[in-house]
Structure formats: C-alpha cells, structure tokens
Write a protein that binds this DNA or RNA. Structure first.
Lengths: 219, 219, 219, 219
DNA sequence: CATGAATGAGTCTTCATTCAT
DNA sequence: GATGAATGAAGACTCATTCAT
C-alpha cells in the first residue's frame, strides 16, 4: 500500500472518465471546486455553469438534478477513499508485505495522504455534505462502517494475534488509530495547510505515539 | 475540571440568556435545531419562524440578518467550548488538582463530554459551518488556535517538565491527544450516538492509549 | 405683497402649530426632510421615527396612516403657497398698492421666493407627490386651478383694462407669466441652488422679459 | 427641425430596439406605463410582470435589478430628448434653415411637442425620478446642463449677433425661453391634457410673447 | 400618551429546472 | 448534444400598522 504501488493495488475508478465529454469534465471540476468552497446548498447551478463555461441547461442534460451532480462527485470519492481496504485477499497482502503494524500504518498514512493531496476538494465535499444527505449517510455507513471498519478490524485482529497490538476491543483500537491518523491528516491538509510542516517527522511522531498507544506490552 | 465542579471553575456564559425574550429563545432553539439538521444554507427563515411559532418578521426584529442569527449561535458556543481552558491561573489549578496528566485528561474528557451532551446541536453547527464563513474561521483561529492551543500546550509542557510526558514537540502531543479525545467524542456522540456504548470503559481505553502513546519512558 | 408685508397680508396658517406637541413637530420635521429627499413611497415610517427620535407607534398615534402624514404636510403647504392670492378684496389691494403690472410681478416674485426659501422641502414634496395621489391632484386643482388661476386671471384682466397688458386670452398671459417666474424660481432654488446667483439682477432680467413679452403695445 | 424633417435631422435612437425580444418590449412598455402612473418606488416588479404577461423572473433575466429597468427607460429618453440639439454642425443647419429666432423657436416647439406626444410616459418618469436618483441627476447634468445648455446658448448668441435677440446674459434668455416653452408644453400635455386646446394659436401666442420678451430693440 | 414588540402581507431577487430551437 | 430564455416557487428581508403594557 505504499505510494508508488497505489495504482497497482486498487483499480482506478477514473476509467469511467473515458466516457466523459470535455464539457462534462469541466462541469465536474467546477462543481467540485465551488461545492468545496461554499457548500452544496450555497452553490448555484448558474455559478457552476459560468465557471465551467457551459450553458446552464447543459448541466441538466448530464445530471438530472443538482443533487445528482453532488452524488456523482461524492460517491466515487467515497469509493476511492476506502479502495485500499477493499482489496480481495487483504490478509495475504498483509502477510507478505507488512510484517509489523507500524509498517502497515506508515504505508497507510502515506497512501491516504497522497490521495488527499490530489482529491482534497472532493474529500471536503464528502465530509461536509454527509451530515445533510441521508443517502450519503447510508452510503457512508455501508462503505466505511461496513467495509472499511470490518476490514481494518480484521487487520488489527491480525496484528493482535501476532502479539503486536494490545488486547483490547478492536473497535477501540481502530477508533484510536484512525482518530490519530485523520487528526494528523486533517490538521496537516485542511486546518493548517499553509503552515510549515516537516511531513516526514510529523508522521514519525504520529506513528510513534500510535504504536506506543496500542502496543501489546503496555497493558 | 471534573464534571461536578464545572460551575465553580468557570462562569456560566448563559446569564446573558436572562435578557432574551421568550420568543427570542424560541427562535434560537428552532434555529439551532434546524441549522444542525439541514445546514445553515439549506434552512429557510420561514422554516425557523414556523417551528418557533413566530412571524417571520419577528426573527428579523431580533437578528438583522439570517447570518446574524447564525453568529449569535456559533459565537457563544465557541466561547463556551474553550471556556474551561481560559481560566486565569490555569497552572495553579493544575498544580493543586491534577497531579498526573492522566487525571487531567480524565477530567477534561468528562467535562467536555458533559458540555457536548447538552450542546450537541450547537456544536454540530459550529464545526459544519466554520468552513464556509470567513468570520467564523477568524473567530475560530483566534479562540482555538490562539487561546486554547497556547494554554493546552503550556499544560502539556507542565507535564513534560514533571517527566510524565514524552519529550516531543508539544504541538504533536497536543494534536495527538486532542485527536484521540475528539475522535472518541465525535464517534460516541455524533457518528454513532445510538450505538450501545459502555461510556466508562471506552473512556478508560482511550485514556490508556493516549497515556501509553505520550508517556515519557517510551522514547 | 412685498416681502415685509407677508405676515400682514395673509393669516399665518401656522397657528395650528400651537396644538402640536413637541414630538409631533419632530415627526413632521423629519417626515418633511426625508419625503423631500427620497420621496414618499421610498421613505419608511421606521426611518421617520428614528430621525424624529420617537417610537414608530407614536407616528400612528398622531397620523392614522402614513398617507395621513403626507397629507398633513402637503395640504397646508398648498394653502400657504396660494395664500397671497386668496386675500379677499384682492382688487382693492391691487388698486392701492400696485399701479403697474411690473410692480405687482416684482412683489409677487419676492414674496413667493421668500416663501420657497423657508419651505423648500415641503414645496418639493408638494410637486413631487401630486402626480401620484389623486386626492392631492384634486386639492391642487381646486386650490390652484380654481382659486389661484381665477384670481390671477382677474388680476391680469385688471391690468389689461389699464392698457398695460396685451389683449390676449388671459390664460395664455397667465401661463406665460407663471412659467417665467417659476422657471426662474425652480432654476434658482431647486435645480442649481448652489450656483452663484445675482438674485437682484436675475429677477430684474426676468421681469424685463416678461414685461416686454406681455406689454400691450407689442401686438 | 420642423416636425416633418425630424427623421432627417437626427438619427432615430430606436434602432437599438431591434435587438429587443418581444417579451423585453412588453416588459419595457409595462414598466413605462406603471412607473409613470405610480412612480418607480411605488411600482412592484410583480405588477410589471403581470401587466407584461411574463413571469417575474423574466424581468430579472433582462434587467439585473429593478433600478436597471428604470435606467434602461430613462437614459435613452434623456438622450432622445436632447437629441435635436446634439447635431454636429448645428450652426450650419441654423444658417441655412432658420433665418430668424422666431422660425427656430417654432421649429423647436413643434419638434419637441411631437416627441413628447409619443413619449409622454417616459418623459414623466424622467422628470419625476430625477430628484431621487443621484445617477440620474448626474446624467441629467451631463446631458442637459452641459450639452443642451451649451448648444442652445450658442444658438442664442448666434441670434444676438444677428441683432435679433436682446443683449442680455444668454443664460437668462435661455432660461426664459425654455421656461416659456416647457411651461406651455407641460400645461398642454401634462397638467391639462384633456382641456380643449387650440394648439396652433397657443403656440403662436407663446412664441409671440417670447419674441417680444427677447427682442433686441426692447432694451 | 408613548412605546416597541409583533405581525404577515408584500418586496425584490434568486433558484433549479424545463423546453423550443 | 448544447443552448439560454423562460418559468414560478421560494428566498431573505421590509413594511405599515396594531396593541398590550
């Protein structure tokens, strides 16, 4: 799951992009940018059309409603976000690739950080709009809670069995781990993106604290 | 800073509520509820008025604009959120009350959890709307980044000097600690509020992992 | 009808002011000022109340409706505007006072100019609002067309009989005379009030041209 | 500048109308009618839309704001009103066409009367709204004060040099002349449009009095 | 008398969506 | 497929007026 393998491990969901016309791409790009900046509800289709350089009607030719446009942004983003965890035969991958929880965490952070860098706007929309749209909540629960959590819990249990991780309800370990990681990523890329970060070191610190926090010997 | 002392340690900012008329309270309550549920932008003043049982004009007698109404919800919430950290002579309080970082953390979590329980809706609005309103961002930076962070960093440094906390940039420790705490609180109260939580135990786990993560001996 | 006699010749309609409370006066003053500046329709009662330093309700205690307030400004202004012509036994006054049409004109101009100087705002409201309010049009026709025109026509006929004024339909002479006078007054006080006027001379010119225009010998 | 030559002497500014859609014309017509009758401020866009038989939103597709709609009526009216005076090489026209001030006046009155007859409503709006809109005042000053006054003063000086017009500040002569003309036109078409006028004769009277008023020999 | 909170109809304007071209 | 004029419902906000205090 390291950065350089990103494209090998999970299918690019962008191949659907092949079917997109030039205008449609423009519309999506513009919508992503403005939705992220002002929120779905505060963005007008007129505004999107102007920024995309198309007529307002063109938007509705491709997306039946404004909400359709939102969904067509959020759904694939959600999929791509959890993609690394949805590989079939994840255990095998883990067995061969990451001998320690630490190595796994490092790969995970770097990989997801790379993803966020390229999809910050879409990610913002995802987390900003989920609370307001039941369908999104549903999708989120299905994808994240069910797929991701279930998978990652299995991963954690994997390392618990290896004696590397504390014997605690894996849910608590998971929450703790993800909180720390996303706490870092959000601070780093959303809250203070312009601050002067020493990325390498901060990741090291974060992993260090997580590892101490969850290491088996410590109970 | 334990729950039972909450009212001794910092003034309740609610005394301003005394000046609110009955209708104004109704308006605020309704606005908080609907803003939290649908977001500021997707909420109509008409809707708020109906839920509050007042005429639409009445809203604008008390709050010049819809945004004014939002601000009058968010600003005090932000203040109350950081209030426990803005006590003068915080160090003295710490010296006498919390001999360990662990005790401090436990008090902190319980205290803020109590606050969140009662102000969940307003808190949601706070974190949901900040990204879209520069004024709010400004206020947030001033209150959180400047006041809270600065204070809590001093607290952390206090325990670092006591040898209880790892020698690491206090910012990293802070981020890690807060991520873990808010990760727990958000999962507990926002994401899965209806799940069957054993609150005591989960807090214990969380604190345990934070403590291991940051304890001095571990570097 | 020269300036200095103004108060002798016609009753001060202001004696009704005796009955006005302090607040009522403030309301009237404020209304006059704002109506003149922005027009009746674009002025809000709230604005008037604020400027007058009274509660909005107070306005409606004194004037049943906003329109009532307008009428209570316009009606007396209209009365005062035509007052000099409504003196009973106007002819006798003329016989003894103004031997020539020229002397009459000069007195008239000076007198009405003095009035306008002190009642510019109310006069503006008068001419600006008449087109939009049928009641005002009615009053105007009754006062101006019937009283004033009739009277002044008699005056003109008086000077026609004296051989000083051209034998032409008195209506045409009247229109011409009034146009020239009000043309001057409006240019002087409404259109270019800040220009550098030599009042004496301009009046002289105006009268000269009117006199030439209407003098008997010229047909 | 006599009526029949009107289209030769200055370009019809109506050719812009070609670009107007049917609905836009309807909107303009309705707006002109209602603005003239009730005043800009007292007219609702809803009312205009209904009269024009379009949806209210359609108005705002063509005119960004209600004020825009007003301006798009007033500005061209102002332009057309002064158009006859903005002909290049006005003097040459005068030299060849109008040997006397009297001939010039007659042509002027007939020409402007023809214009007013067809644009009465727009003209009303023009003079009724100018006092309330600084932009309009500005435009008015620029068009009328600068262009028209300057040109007409040159015309007057032209006839003064010919010895036909009294040696008086041309401004006074101008004011007098225009007052008399507009006094007639306003009485005729605005104040008492329904009265039984003998147009020919009244114009003759008016010109006679103006001519006497300004003729050179009379000083 | 005077107040000012409360009203709800009405204001201008924006919006997502449709449809004829 | 793309357009953009047209829509009318809905939006935030203002208004003149009322009435309990």
């Amino acid at each position: 799951m390291p950065e350089q393998n990103q494209h090998n491990l999970f299918e690019e969901l962008l191949n659907q992009d092949e079917s997109l016309t030039e205008k449609q791409k423009k519309i999506l790009e513009s919508a992503i940018e403005i939705f992220a900046e002002k929120g779905y509800s505060a963005t007008s289709t007129n505004e999107i059309a102007k920024k995309a350089g198309v007529a307002e009607g063109t938007i509705f030719r491709h997306y039946k409603t404004k909400k359709d446009l939102l969904l067509s942004i959020v759904a694939p983003t959600m999929a791509k976000l959890v993609a690394p965890f949805v590989i079939k035969d994840l255990n095998k991958v883990l067995d061969t690739k990451y001998e320690t929880y630490e190595a796994f965490l490092k790969a995970l952070i770097l990989n997801r950080q790379a993803f966020l860098k390229e999809n910050m706007a879409a990610f913002r929309i995802l987390i900003q709009e989920i609370p307001f749209h039941p369908e999104l909540k549903e999708q989120f629960k299905e994808h994240i809670a069910n797929k991701l959590f279930e998978r990652v819990q299995r991963i954690i249990e994997h390392y618990q069995e290896l004696g590397q991780v504390i014997s605690m309800p894996s849910q608590a370990v998971l929450r703790f781990t993800l909180s720390s990681i996303f706490g870092f990523l959000i601070a780093r890329h959303l809250l203070l993106p312009e601050a002067d970060w020493d990325n390498e070191k901060e990741i090291e610190y974060t992993i260090h604290m997580i590892m101490n926090g969850v290491k088996a010997s410590s109970i």
